[in-house]
Design a protein around this nucleic acid. Structure first.
Lengths: 248, 248
DNA sequence: CGACTAGTTGAACGACGTCAACCGTTGTGG
DNA sequence: CCACAACGGTTGACGTCGTTCAACTAGTCG
């Protein structure tokens, strides 16, 4: 018994399908839909798992956003990945026993825990799904690489533009973008932690982006007013997302 | 027929064993040793594979060092990973068809190409080895995360110290460190590309590290004179390397 | 109403980049 | 054998992007 109605799983199944290189069979969709998901909700800034944990389960994001982060000893924080509905942020715990990162909700977030054993059973029954999850972690790796390039070699203006481009596409993949606008409840402090700059500087760059007519970000909602200018400023090239097809 | 004598494979088998959570069986060691490796050598700064390639084979580093890198449109270069003997830098090509990065030799380097089909056959015969390779790519992901923290949140002095700590341990794992000293033929320009700073600044930090009696780096050889001071300066915590045991 | 959190803006500072000159080594061709 | 180009390293002067510190505003929740 899953405890979560099927509609809530929708982003999850949709995401898996968007990663797979083939069309999921009915049996595979059903197996995914029947996977026992144990629900939990978290408030903004609450940790879901923390470094050095040895989890016996993974979780899928159902609504909201999570941030995978690490900190230096003196408390400086670096977000190394965001995860949106449909993603499984800590899939590596299936093969790497102790976590080398923490994951926090950055906004009110609902997740569904899946026992490692349940996943192993799923992959035994449906080996192709195992390949899809493998592929998913490899795509996460590709995102990491792009973030390294972005944070290491681009100024803060294109850097922030790039992050917004990526998030828009990823949210669009799971149907969370309408009219170039989406829920994105990231504080400026959060953004700074992802981009490797301070919240003060985030504020200034955000002002430039706003004044340039590229985007608006307020009340937890991001709207892109000029996608072509934004993606050009970001030097955005979506190949690193390894999409099956280009989104609308 | 492999074309490469068995001793040259040694770092490769040794590395696989260092990743596995179990002791390799004789059959598994033999299967690895018999894997058809097609040799090739590259000079410093030569590309081995490049972004947008669609390779039908992976390669293992046998001697030397490779750099995985990406560039911005205006040519600024960011190294996102180094790979040392025993590593398989482009294992992801097995599941992600088009590469989102390039790999270059940073010094004269010998590699062995392995056909994707040969790997798939290996994993079919020895499923546990498939798990080990999966684990290897997840560890690469962990390194990426640590690099993001390092490059995003640490000043250039601890940042460089951290890189040297990591490389010392990884080279030690495959037996390439003696007396706290190893071959490390990275130019200052290379180092800058990995750390997200300029070669001029690399030179200054290197001087500080040298003057502080922490390391010496010249003639392509790195020697660590004061490991405890170096690792303290770097805030180095090796858990992210997911070692089975701590090295000497 | 006060406390707290998020955002906004200015001014001074500092880490790192840029530009430029110079040195030593290596390799190459006249 | 020497000339000289090419490359990597070294160092100084100066510029700039982003940080730090600080003050102020607005919204929210008890």
């Amino acid at each position: 018994m899953s405890g979560i109605p099927l509609t809530d799983r929708h982003p999850f199944v949709r995401r898996i399908q968007s990663i797979a290189l083939f069309d999921l069979s009915e049996a595979e969709r059903a197996a995914l839909a029947l996977l026992p998901l144990h629900p939990a909700t978290y408030d903004a800034h609450q940790d879901i798992v923390t470094e050095h944990d040895r989890p016996s389960r993974c979780f899928a994001v159902l609504t909201g956003i999570t941030a995978t982060y690490k900190t230096t000893r003196d408390g400086r924080r670096q977000v190394v990945a965001y995860h949106v509905p449909g993603d499984v942020p800590d899939f590596q715990s299936l093969h790497l026993k102790t976590l080398d990162f923490s994951i926090a909700a950055v906004a009110p977030t609902r997740i569904g825990f899946v026992a490692h054993d349940a996943l192993r059973g799923l992959f035994r029954e449906h080996p192709r799904l195992g390949d899809v999850f493998w592929r998913a972690t490899l795509i996460d790796g590709a995102l990491s690489r792009e973030w390294m390039l972005n944070n290491g070699r681009r100024g803060s203006f294109p850097r922030m533009a790039h992050l917004f481009c990526e998030l828009m596409i990823r949210l669009d993949l799971v149907g969370l973008v309408q009219d170039h606008s989406c829920e994105l409840p990231l504080t400026q402090y959060e953004l700074g932690d992802a981009l490797g700059i301070t919240s003060v500087h985030v504020n200034r760059i955000l002002k430039e982006l706003r004044d340039g007519g590229l985007i608006s970000l307020s009340g937890g909602r991001l709207t892109v007013h000029d996608w072509s200018a934004l993606s050009k400023a970001a030097e955005f090239d979506e190949t690193y997302l390894h999409l099956r097809r280009t989104p609308a």
